[in-house]
Design a protein around this nucleic acid. Structure first.
Lengths: 143, 143
DNA sequence: TTATAAATAGAAATCATTTCTATTTACATT
DNA sequence: AATGTAAATAGAAATGATTTCTATTTATAA
């Protein structure tokens, strides 16, 4: 927690109860969360936070490298905690329980140099979405 | 064109002027297109098509493997023609001119087996978004 | 303690996308 | 070529996630 608060300070954000509460939520939950879901969870803990605030806080936390935005097929916004910032890696998403796990492996340079040679292009960004069933869910029967 | 019409027939879709017009548009343009943009382009060619129809046609063409949905950071819907269906590959998107090019290379099995071993998970889907400047745009000065 | 820039709530707006329904059309079968 | 029918379509309206706006409150540096 302290680590993430320090990151926020570095980015000149004030440490407010809402930001802390959102951070705590992500530290507790291993799965990705959406704005409205977050509002409800905070509400249960008696902290009313307006949706616009939540959207803004999520953006700020993402901009600080603390959260990662999930490109979900439903096209709604989701975020998850990034436990290894500054290290090139990807995230594996369980399509059943929404758990997100770090994948400390990235073979992107290979495909990147292929593109630069073959298409004579300049690669700037990439994002990989990997989905499946996590170690727990893969053995469960369908709902 | 005939090739794509045959695919539509296989999927039991009727060959209508709207579907043909949308297909023609994508055959002519090498870049990704959005629903409203498509409506305007068809309108200029004196074919008025309702937006709901365009959304539906795009979905149908995607479902038939003719178009590919682009996961754009703006979170709006975009589609581009997939010139190599049935072959595992990716698409490179030029962030300046929106051109989409096929990348006949996929090293996903490597990262996939890494995940299956390390996380003991079952990988189901993946999608890779690769963005940069194409061979033409990389030499141009910023707008 | 105070000043002030940042953070927030809540209402309202935005706008891409979807739904609904009446009408039209492609095309298989005569 | 004519016809019947399911599929396709337009247009209006609804939806709903996300964003904007503004007045108020708050964290924190001085």
């Amino acid at each position: 927690m302290e680590k993430y608060l320090a990151v926020l300070k570095e980015h000149h954000f004030k440490i407010t109860p809402r930001r802390k509460a959102v951070l705590e939520l992500f530290l507790r939950e291993k799965r990705y969360l959406g704005p409205y879901e977050i509002k409800q969870m905070l509400g249960k803990a008696s902290l009313e936070v307006g949706l616009p605030s939540i959207y803004r806080i999520l953006e700020e936390l993402e901009g600080s490298g603390i959260l990662v935005k999930i490109e979900h097929s439903s096209r709604r916004l989701y975020y998850c905690l990034c436990r290894k910032p500054y290290v090139s890696h990807h995230h594996f998403i369980c399509s059943k329980c929404n758990k997100v796990e770090e994948v400390e492996f990235c073979n992107f340079p290979e495909i990147s140099s292929f593109i630069e040679k073959k298409l004579n292009a300049r690669v700037q960004h990439h994002s990989l979405h990997i989905e499946g069933l996590c170690s727990e869910c893969r053995w469960e029967n369908s709902p």
